[in-house]
């Protein structure tokens, strides 16, 4: 059949290859909007800040604020808890990095670097304050406060234990709990975000 002869694809034919390549590029470009639409939208990405009044948080108490859909633990630690945290050698830590969004990415996980004192203003007086995203770095559950073997936080889902500075000490979680960007705008007000 004569038809069949001309239809036989000639793989060396530049025209066919070029057409196929152009079509493939177009198809890939057309797919992108369908994938990218699943990314967070502009409203979600818009920098959201919250102000939290901490005047009612006495020593040894905590409150939980909601920021970007996640809980943020704000705790004024007792002197004993701070001492416990300071006593830990960096070498003992499972994750030696501070995970503090206000510091450099490789800052060591000392107690000062974990606490609000690291954030600059009025350093010494703020070391009692701990502000961190209350999400277990294992698989996203919310740990229970003041419990577990290190008297810090304990995640009931899979048994990760954090110390009084929110650092991972035992269990499957890989990292210390994250510190969000925040600052004290006054002595009793924290702006997160």
């Amino acid at each position: 059949m004569s038809v069949h002869d001309t239809a036989e694809p000639n793989r060396r034919d530049f025209l066919y290859i070029a057409t196929g390549a152009v079509g493939a590029v177009g198809a890939i470009a057309a797919v992108w909007p369908f994938i990218d639409q699943m990314n967070p939208d502009a409203a979600t990405l818009a920098l959201a800040e919250i102000d939290v009044d901490v005047s009612q948080v006495a020593e040894g108490q905590s409150i939980t604020a909601k920021w970007r859909g996640k809980p943020v633990f704000i705790r004024q630690r007792t002197a004993k808890e701070v001492e416990e945290a300071k006593a830990v050698e960096l070498g003992e830590l499972k994750d030696p990095i501070a995970r503090n969004a206000n510091l450099a990415a490789d800052a060591p996980a000392t107690d000062v670097n974990r606490s609000a004192a690291a954030e600059g203003t009025d350093a010494a007086a703020k070391e009692q304050w701990l502000v961190m995203i209350g999400v277990c770095t294992h698989l996203g559950c919310i740990p229970l406060g003041q419990s577990g073997p290190y008297n810090g936080w304990f995640c009931p889902c899979h048994g990760s234990a954090y110390d009084t500075a929110g650092r991972i000490r035992q269990g499957p979680a890989p990292e210390n709990m994250a510190i969000p960007p925040f600052k004290f705008t006054t002595d009793t007000n924290i702006r997160i975000g």
Binding site: W32, Q37, A42, T44
Partner: peptide, 29 residues
């Protein structure tokens, strides 16, 4: 993909379509 962003509730349906048009990546397209 539009159904991933649309809200079929008479109180917010109109605004959810506008959210698609304004905020969702490539939503207008």
């Amino acid at each position: 993909v539009l159904a991933m962003h649309y809200a079929a509730n008479s109180a917010i349906a109109f605004d959810s379509v506008e959210k698609i048009m304004r905020d969702v990546n490539w939503g207008w397209l």
